[in-house]
């Protein structure tokens, strides 16, 4: 990653388009339709109508297998969450709950305190998302638009944090957080996770792709930082900011290792940890509530994904495709 960041030292007159400013993994604009050649247009236009029926049938069989491999386990999880215990332990398995047992959900929510884990997940994810998106946008703004000493070095320092695996930081961080008495507190879960490396990279690359003239105009007007940010930069950046926000939401909601180490009560632990604790208590004997807990932990992200998938995929794949 480091090498091409140096190419950032370009003469101010050089065009600063995204392709040039990007590190070796280029192209954040995958949402744009590719330029089609005449042959491509022809091919797209005609579809598969010319391929043989055998190929077509094979394609649909493959499609059906794909759907089955993904949906059957999910379906199995959902129906198990609605079954009574004898129904779960039937052989062969039943494909429809008989009788319906939504009590698994109320049992999980009240007796097993999933309402609290859910609340904790919302608090942790909410705060982390606001903090990370703010920090990411602000640092990216500085790296993209302001000239200051050591800029390239500091930028490399920020994105190189992506390379440091979690498991090498947990021991020392755990020791620090425990000494501060921050175990089982929101601050202890949130603060060590709040630094932003990828988001800074993503936003900076986007900012560098903005037309330079607009920034210059804002500068000439003597426009203040806040005005430039809110009136000029952000209005041209919402898709990227939203993509960044969505991947942060998903990432923090699913974060496991760190909260697992520092939180072990329903007072602060998020859903995935609650699920682990629930599994320790109920698992292997009482699968109904465990599955209900799984569905509750999973559903919010699936719903967000289904509504906003295009924007989310843009964020998750940004920087990955050779453009």
């Amino acid at each position: 990653m480091t090498t091409s960041v140096d190419t950032q030292v370009v003469p101010p007159t050089a065009p600063r388009d995204a392709g040039e400013a990007l590190p070796p993994v280029p192209g954040t604009q995958i949402d744009e339709a590719p330029q089609l050649t005449a042959a491509q247009r022809r091919r797209r236009g005609r579809g598969v109508d010319q391929s043989s029926p055998v190929v077509k049938i094979a394609g649909y069989i493959a499609l059906a297998i794909t759907v089955a491999v993904i949906m059957v386990p999910l379906y199995f999880i959902v129906i198990t969450s609605l079954k009574t215990r004898p129904d779960i332990y039937s052989d062969p398995i039943t494909w429809w709950p008989n009788p319906f047992n939504p009590q698994n959900y109320s049992y999980v929510m009240t007796t097993l305190e999933f309402d609290l884990y859910l609340r904790n997940s919302v608090i942790i994810t909410g705060i982390l998302t606001v903090v990370k998106v703010t920090l990411g946008v602000l640092s990216a703004y500085a790296f993209a638009f302001i000239k200051f000493p050591l800029r390239n070095f500091l930028f490399v320092l920020v994105i190189a944090a992506l390379m440091v695996p979690n498991q090498i930081t947990i021991i020392s961080n755990y020791s620090l957080i425990a000494q501060l008495g921050w175990r089982n507190t929101f601050i202890g879960i949130i603060v060590p996770l709040a630094g932003v490396a990828f988001g800074t990279f993503l936003m900076r690359n986007h900012f560098l792709s903005l037309p330079k003239e607009i920034m210059e105009a804002a500068e000439m007007d003597g426009s203040s930082f806040f005005r430039t940010l809110f009136k000029v930069v952000l209005p041209m950046s919402w898709p990227t900011v939203i993509a960044f926000t969505l991947i942060t939401v998903v990432g923090e909601w699913n974060e496991y290792l760190w909260p697992f180490l520092v939180a072990d009560t329903s007072a602060t632990a998020p859903l995935p940890i609650g699920l682990t604790l629930l599994q320790d208590v109920e698992g292997l004997t009482n699968w109904g509530p465990v599955m209900a807990g799984t569905v509750l932990a999973t559903l919010p992200m699936l719903v967000i994904f289904l509504i906003l998938q295009k924007r989310m995929i843009k964020g998750l794949t940004a920087g990955a495709v050779k453009g």
């Binding site: 949906m71 940890i273 599955m291 932990a297 992200m301 699936l302």
Partner: peptide
């Protein structure tokens, strides 16, 4: 189907792990 293939990627690994224990 494209959405379906991508969907499990947004689910928590811990949740998938717990559920697949029973699968």
């Amino acid at each position: 189907v494209r959405s379906m293939v991508f969907a499990p990627y947004v689910i928590s690994g811990a949740a998938i792990g717990v559920a697949f224990q029973f699968v």
